[in-house]
Amino acid sequence: MIAVVAAVLAYLFLWRTPTGFRLRAVGLSKDAARYAGIPVKRMTTLALTLSGALSGLAGAILVFGSESHRMVTDGSAAGLTGNAGFNGIVAALFGGLHPLWTIPASFLFGGLLVGGNALQRAVQVPSALILALNGLVVVFVVSSDRFRRRARMRTVAPLDDETPALAAAEADP
């Protein structure tokens, strides 16, 4: 529940506040943002701080959600978090880096992980397979991103004095 609320808050912050807009601008084009007077370093620091805070929140939820309210590790390298950090990156990508889409994406990946563990118990397919598949998903999503971005830019007819960065910023939903 907290996670869904956090996702909605993230969306509101990034798309409906001036600071959020500046943050997104820096991500889309560092040079254009600097030219517009946006403090790039401050925005980057803010972005990383926020993401760090959310990661910490995720860790806390992980512990509070466990039966014993303790940090449970199975001794493997993934141990405590079960690779949740890396899976988070994948879920974010799958959601097109948009906070609201990360909600269904995360449910999808949560399901994949639980299914993977169930597969392991039922038919002896190691959950490592899911990890490998996750990796492939990341690679494919990221590889295709280039084509999708080019296609999107072509559908936005630029005005005479519009710069490509501005067109990209306006096309970003």
Binding site: N83, F86, I89, V90, L93, P126, A128, L129, I130, L131, A132, L133, N134, G135, L136, V137, V138, V139, V142, S143, D145, R146
Partner: peptide
């Protein structure tokens, strides 16, 4: 393909981590 290099690298890492463990098991 010109993919985002940091992220595609993480993808290869996850693939390598999972695949090596899978093959080993």
């Amino acid at each position: 393909l010109g993919a985002e290099q940091g992220i595609s690298g993480i993808g290869v890492y996850l693939f390598g981590l999972g695949m090596s463990d899978l093959l080993f098991q």
